[in-house]
Amino acid sequence: MAGILVCIEQRNGEIRKASLQALSEAKRLAGGDLPVAAVLIGEGVTASAAGLGANGASKVFVADDANLKLYSAEGYAEAVVKAAEAFGPSAVFFSGTAMGRDLAPRVAAKLGVGALADVVALSREGETFVARRPVYSGKAFTTVDSAGTSPQVISLRPNVFELEEGGGAAEVVALDGLALSIRAVVTEFLAAEGGEIDVAEADVIVAGGRGIKGPENLGLIRDLADALGGAVGASRAIVDAGWIGHSNQVGQTGKVVSPSLYIACGISGAIQHLAGMSSSKVIVAINKDPDAPIFKVADYGIVGDLFEVIPPMIEAIKAL
């Protein structure tokens, strides 16, 4: 039987949680009958390879090279393809991070196959993987497979699949003889200011819309986000108005998010916004207009003035 190869992402040598989630899901799907291997790429990463056994890998292919210190689609794709050639998997999994979403299609094209992106649920029929993925930014969900082509390249949405631990050390295999003809290279990584949490990764999001009246009132949204240890999101309206950067935008043409808690403040709920956040586990809406569409997707709503509601909310949260 062929097996599942999982591409592991690291930054500065630190293995990212989303990769371990993908590896855990691979192990669950593999059951007892499919072997699971991982491929780890970077510089000075060999030492952390054997530890991936704890999340389900029995074998870890390692491409450890100074030219792979920072991510490059071409260099990393070459390494993944080399590991796939050595392992002969029926599927190659990636985490659906910025890197995984960039790398998976390049690897797939190199292997001459298609890919299933941003998958939120997986099952297995023999060696066929069946994936559920959101389309139209979550306005609908589709169930798809790779139409009998192999290997099946699949990227798994972060924070959807559970991380599991409990295996021994993995066998480590070095990938040698990589040509690494890299043209596009990352030359610099600019960390976001003040260590602000990215909405795509946040467990709690507090989002503001036109109801906040002006950029000077974003502080109130930020204070509520801070009280909950969350990130600040935004409707398209206030991004287009220039009140906040586009990286904070939630919705179609912005980020599609599914945090544990989403608090929409002064957001009426345009269909494009709802598409991007309605799969959040718990939704709270605060809006003056009782007929605002946002209340239709809200688990809890407060009809009222956000400027009068948020400050006592922050107080109540701090008092918990």
């Binding site: 196959v113 298609g114 890919a115 299933l116 069946v130 389309v135 979550g138 306005k139 609908a140 969900f141 589709t142 169930t143 798809v144 497979d145 790779s146 139409a147 009998g148 082509t149 309605s278 799969s279 239709k296 997707v297 688990d299």
Partner: peptide, 15 residues
């Protein structure tokens, strides 16, 4: 047949 076979499309469950 390509590389992507759609088995079904459905709306998200109503809340």
């Amino acid at each position: 047949g390509g590389t992507y076979s759609i088995r079904s499309l459905e709306l998200p469950p109503e809340k």
